[in-house]
Amino acid sequence: MSLEKQVVGEVVLEVHNLSASYNRKPVLWDIDFQLTAGQLVGIVGPNGSGKTTLLRNIMGLMEADSGYVRLFGKGLNEVRDRVSYVPQRESVDWDFPVSVREVVEMGRYRPKNLLRRLKTSDQDLVDQALEKVGMLEYAARQIGQLSGGQQQRVFLARALAQDADLYLMDEPFVGVDAATEDAILKVLTELKEDGKTVVIVHHDLQTAFQYFDSMVLLNTRLVAVGPKNSVFTKENLQEAYGGRLTVLSKLSQVIASSEFPVREKGFKEKTGKGDPQDG
C-alpha cells in the first residue's frame, strides 16, 4: 500500500507515558517505549498484566488516561491504512452466518469504499491472503464449520488482506494446532523479511523466546523492552512474574545457558534510546 520505503530501524511505534484503566482500576502505568521496523516483537507478561489493554490503546479502541501513541511518527488516524489489528479469536461469535471469504473481505473495507462494492483488485488480494494461510479451498465455508486453528488462520488472512506495514495481533497462537502454528510462523517470517513489523501479545514464555526477536515485558508497568536476550534475564522475569518463580528461574537458567538458538537479525539500534527518525 504505502509508497514510502520501509527502512529497517525506522521507529514504527512509539508509546509515550501511557496510562490506562478499566473501571478506574489502573491497568497500565506510564508505559514508555519505541519499536523499530522489520522485527517480530512479543508483548509478554502474566495474566492481567495489561497486554491486551496496551494493544487496544495503540489501536485507539479505548481512551488512555494520559500519554499518547504515535505510529510511523504520526497519529493513528493518519496512518490507518498501514496498521492492521487482529483481535482475540474468542472476541467474535463464530456461529455468525458469514463465509470465510466474507470475513477476509472485511480486511479490504475502508472509510473510502463505504457504501461501495469491493473492486476486483480487492478480491485478488483476498484470494492471495487466503492462499498464503492455506485457506483458499475453504473460502465458501461458514466460519463456524472450521477448527479453532483454521479460524485463527482466517483472522490472519484478513490481516494480510489489509496489506499493512505494522501488524498488531492479540494471542494468535492460543488454541491452535501444530499445522496452524507453522503456517502462522511462516507468514510472520515472510512479513518480517518484507521489512514489516509484527507486534504480538503472547502469554507463553517458552515459545515467546523461540518466536520473537524483541520483547516488551509487562506487568502493569513496563519491566523491560529490547532484544529478547537482554529482556529475558532472571531479574526481569522475577520482577514481572513476582511470586511464582520456581519455573521461571529454571527457564531463565535454560535461556542463560543458551540452549535456544539465539539470532539477532536486522537489529542495530537498541530501542528506547534513539530519537524517532523520519521515514
Binding site: M59, L61, N77, V103, Y109, R110, P111, R158, Q162
Partner: peptide, 10 residues
C-alpha cells in the same frame, strides 16, 4: 460481526 475490527479500520 466484529465492531472492534470495524473501528480499527477507521
Amino acid at each position: 460481526f466484529n465492531p472492534e475490527f470495524a473501528q480499527s479500520l477507521g
